[in-house]
Design a protein around this nucleic acid. Structure first.
Lengths: 354, 354
DNA sequence: CGCTGTCATGATAGCGCTACCATTCGTTTT
DNA sequence: AAAACGAATGGTAGCGCTATCATGACAGCG
């Protein structure tokens, strides 16, 4: 009796100990909707996913049944069956730094409008953590993956290289694994350094925070350094061991003044640092830019509200997110992608601080 | 021939037109891992999900096979089978406002450490949008849902009320649907108003941005107003039609000075507004607090770096996220939850601006 | 009138995994 | 010695949905 005969043809017979108990999910299923609408499950599925593939009457009665039963599609089941999830993995190195949040914002408003959902991961600038996140996200059969930066560890690179969905690397411009939207940080560093030299400053210190982690800031230093070298100038670097913040900027100012008393200008790796230094200088009664000139990077709103206004480089962060999202959507909808690299550029914003 | 006989018992027979083609996912499956490890699929599953339910030897060979084949678990399939997803839906009204990002940060670091993943949604302060997001997220059979605030539209409320997973409402304290971690905004408004009165100010204007959306700011106004009323004072309100920002704060200052020339102090709905006003006052040569006192809410770092320092109310945002996450985890691991409401409190930070 | 093509619909068979039960085997209990 | 028990493992049957193919109805056409 325990051995059920396979020749049995009617499965709905009342066989005694064959019907297993499974957690009874009270969830309304598509089959129930279909039954209520008087169509087959597959037609109900089509009515919801490909509305123009069914007759008007069928679509109407399905939608009505959905409404009536309070049906909520089980996206997990749908994804498994179709191996399309409409999930987009987004991996950033930090949430404290508002720069990444703005990129996420741009991504999100564009992706959500197209019915995609964001799966968010934060690496805290740890590439091994990135690998773990990528593994998890691939497990969710995401439709695409967005990650900040072009550098990944070996395992992560291998995993992604064998993945057959779009990969979008943002923030920095360069030859990536697949799609790329960003800006040239070396050029940005050069741009600001040139500006400072044009303004007549000769003793210029670059101040960054955790450059080994925030390697894009160190790329900007590279650009900065190369310009100064070309002019035969020294390019001292001060690296802080905290994350970028107003507080760290204030400390950076103090340290620079102590270590390099002749400094005329400080090129900070970002606006948080620069604004912190500027506000600290004010508190100390220093005149900016006469006593010390200050420049930043990012173009945060804060820089435009301090006095004097902060000289900085504006990067189009939300725009970067939106463009990345648009390119992904284009790719996901099967269209050809003409350019795999997109330079969103940057703008020098000169303020009174230099 | 077209009518297939149901009595056929061996499905792997070479019947001509029966073997369907399905997209050949090159993905490594758990069965392959199991085969390589010389165990059954279910043992392989257990080795990965419940390591102490299998023998050491089995676990070892499974892990080895995983490594060797580069197996990445299909979490979609796992979720469908187990109806547990280890996804946590997080819904916030804004990503521009750093306050919510900090809560997300707190949630994330705690949840990720426990192997949960965040599904992020942004309502842009639109409750209908919240409903749509909730629907989608329920479709992903999330393990829990975190949302900002206690107010939801009717449909959303119904949906959530019938959902049998933990719901965590954060930011504001009150009787919610399930779990709640937040602070009392009315009390916070009262606190700041009392402080301003203690300082001797009598003509006090409250300035908020889009209060109908940011109803927590209007709760703070309610508190503010009640204190002033108790003292027999007028409580004028100026509502700006833009989102809170430094720029909006500067405009708020201008409008207040124009409309209420006798104003001695401005109570801003948040620090962005307050700092914007403070910096604008500085640019205009106004003395803070002699000419005009300024107070904010949130306790953003910026407030501590402007001169004079901004009087504000510090809310423990990351802590709120962490606590919310911990409570959720406790609930998800089946432990009893002692308190359904958690007051994270707030701290008045007096600076030179009042 | 048969042939082909298009359209709407349905039956079937999975997607990759895990819950549920059953089985085995070695150990403890009565 | 028999019975009871627990630990490790496996067979089976879904989870709820959709891809694939099959079918039937109907229009157009020589």
């Amino acid at each position: 009796m325990s051995k059920d005969s396979p020749s049995k043809v009617s499965p709905n017979a009342d066989s005694p100990n064959t019907t297993r108990q499974r957690r009874s999910s009270d969830q309304v299923t598509l089959s129930q909707v279909a039954q209520a609408a008087g169509v087959s499950p597959i037609t109900a599925s089509r009515a919801l996913n490909y509305p123009d593939k069914v007759s008007d009457s069928a679509r109407l009665s399905v939608l009505q049944a959905v409404e009536q039963l309070g049906y909520v599609p089980n996206l997990v089941a749908g994804s498994l069956a179709s191996s399309r999830s409409r999930l987009i993995a987004v991996i950033v190195p930090s949430l404290i730094n508002s720069v990444f949040v703005e990129v996420i914002k741009g991504l999100q408003e564009t992706l959500e409008a197209e019915g995609y959902q964001i799966l968010l991961g934060n690496t805290d600038y740890d590439l091994d953590r990135e690998y773990q996140l990528v593994r998890t996200f691939l497990g969710w059969s995401c439709s695409a993956l967005v990650t900040a930066g072009l550098r990944h560890n070996k395992a992560c690179h291998t995993l992604l290289a064998n993945w057959d969905h779009p990969i979008m690397e943002v923030m920095e411009l360069g030859k990536g694994m697949d799609l790329n939207v960003g800006l040239d940080h070396v050029a940005a560093g050069r741009c600001m350094a040139s500006h400072l030299i044009d303004k007549g400053y000769r003793h210029i210190v670059y101040v960054g925070a955790r450059l080994s982690q925030d390697y894009r800031a160190s790329m900007r230093f590279d650009g900065h350094q190369s310009v100064l070298k070309e002019k035969g100038l020294d390019a001292p670097l001060l690296e802080l061991d905290t994350l970028g913040s107003l507080q760290a900027g204030a400390e950076g100012l103090t340290q620079v003044l102590a270590q390099y008393p002749h400094t005329q200008a400080i090129h900070f790796a970002n606006d948080d640092l620069a604004a912190g230094a500027l506000l600290a200088a004010q508190r100390q009664g220093l005149n900016v830019p006469k006593d010390i000139a200050i420049a930043g990077f990012n173009g945060l709103p804060l820089g435009q509200h301090v006095t004097p206004q902060l000289t900085t480089i504006l990067s189009p962060r939300e725009e970067m997110g939106r463009l990345a999202a648009k390119e992904l959507i284009r790719r996901l909808s099967g269209k050809n992608v003409y350019r795999r690299q997109h330079d969103v550029g940057f703008t020098l914003q000169t303020g009174g601080s230099t």
